[in-house]
Amino acid sequence: MTGAQDRPRVLTETDGEVWRITLARPEAGNALDPATARQLAAAFRERPEATRTVLLLGNGERFCVGGDVHTFAGAADPGAFVGQLAHDWHEVIRLVLQCPVPVVAGVQGAVAGAAVGLVGACDLVVCARSTKIRPAYGAIGLSPDGGTSWALTRALGAPRALDLMLTNGVLTAAEAHLFGLVGRLVEDDEVHESAVALAHQVAAGPVRAMVRTRALVRKAATRTLDEQLDDEARLIAESAADPEGREGVRAFVEKRTPDFRGAR
C-alpha cells in the first residue's frame, strides 16, 4: 500500500492544448514542503511544447494552505530549512512568471501563505466565492515569501497590504476580486469547470501576443509612460510580424474566425 508521504505531490496531464498541473496533497490542504516545490517546478519545466496554456488546480477542499508548518517545527535548523524552501519555492514563482504560455489558476477553499504569491503570479485566476485568502505569516512569527508581499502590494496598495499582513487579516473572495488579486468569481461548485473552460478558451487565442501583453501589464506600474510607449511600439511590431498577427489581420479582412492554433 502506498502511504500519503509516498504519493506524488503534483499531478500532470495533457488535456488537449492545456497542460494541467494539480496540487495533489489534499489531506494536508496541499501544504508546501520541499517535495512539492521540486515537483511543481518540474511540472512547469516539463510542459509539452504543443500545449498552449497551463492550468493550475488544487485537489480537495482547499487550494493551498501555504507552507507545511509541521515540517518547519521538525527541522533541526529552522532558519536553514525555511530559507532553502523559500529559495526552491521562488524558483517555482519565477517559472510561473516566465512561462512561455499563459497560466490560468482555479482556486477554492483556502489560499494562504506562499500560495498567495503563487496566485498573484498567475495570469488569470478563477476563484470560488467562499474562498478565504490569508497571508498568515504573522500568526507564526514569520515575514512573507513566495512573492506574497509583491502580489498583495500590487493588488491592494501598500496601506491595505500592510494592514492585512500586520494584523494577520483575511481577504474574502469578493474583496480579492474588488482589489484585483483575482480576476473572476464563480460559485463554489463551478470553479474547476470554469477554470478548465477558460484555459481552453485561452489556448485557442493568440498566446504569443498574450504573453507580450502580460509583460506590458506587469511592467506598467514601475516605469514612465514614455518607457511604456516605447515597449508597446516594439511589441506590437513583433506581434504584427508574428504568424499570429498575420493570421489575425487576414481573418479580419476576410471576415472569418482566425485560426491562431495554425499560426506557427
Rank of each mutant, 00 (worst) to 15 (best):
L57H: 01
A136H: 14
S149Y: 09
H90E: 13
L181H: 05
A209F: 03
R47S: 03
P135F: 15
S143Y: 11
V182E: 04
G3I: 06
A76D: 12
E13Y: 03
V126H: 07
G74L: 08
L185H: 04
R7D: 05
R134F: 13
E190C: 06
A76R: 08
L156T: 03
R234Y: 10
H200E: 15
Q5G: 10
A173S: 13
A43G: 05
A24W: 01
A31P: 01
A199E: 02
I140T: 13
V186R: 02
S130G: 15
R52L: 10
A50I: 05
A220P: 06
E13T: 09
A115E: 07
L85A: 05
G29E: 02
R261L: 10
A43M: 05
A24H: 08
E46N: 09
I21E: 00
A121T: 09
G147A: 09
R38N: 07
Y137S: 02
E232L: 14
H200I: 07
E193I: 08
A114Y: 12
D242K: 01
A197E: 13
A42R: 08
A35H: 03
T224A: 11
V170Q: 08
G106C: 11
R7H: 05
A114T: 14
R20A: 01
D242P: 01
D6R: 08
D68K: 06
A75M: 07
D189W: 04
T22L: 10
P48H: 04
R214E: 12
A41D: 08
L95Q: 12
T213S: 15
Q201G: 13
G74T: 01
E61C: 09
I93A: 04
K255D: 11
R250N: 10
Q98L: 12
G147L: 02
V202N: 00
A37Q: 01
G262D: 07
T131G: 15
A203P: 00
P102G: 11
L178T: 13
R223Y: 02
M165G: 05
R62E: 14
L229F: 14
L235P: 00
L124F: 14
A105S: 14
F44C: 05
L166R: 08
L124D: 06
Q5M: 06
H70G: 07
T148W: 04
V18I: 09
Y137C: 04
V54C: 11
W19S: 00
T51L: 08
E244Y: 03
M210V: 15
S130K: 12
G79L: 09
E27K: 01
A221W: 15
I93N: 01
L216I: 10
A110V: 13
V186M: 04
Q39C: 07
L171W: 07
A73D: 09
A151G: 02
G205V: 03
P144I: 10
R264L: 06
A199S: 14
C127A: 14
L11H: 03
R208V: 06
A37K: 00
F44N: 01
V196N: 11
D123I: 11
G180W: 13
T2E: 10
F179G: 00
R154Y: 08
M210Q: 15
F260Q: 00
A42T: 10
V10L: 07
G180L: 14
G120S: 14
T131P: 07
D242L: 00
D123K: 03
A112L: 12
R7L: 12
M210W: 14
A161W: 05
E232S: 10
S194T: 13
P100Q: 13
C127I: 10
P34I: 02
P102D: 11
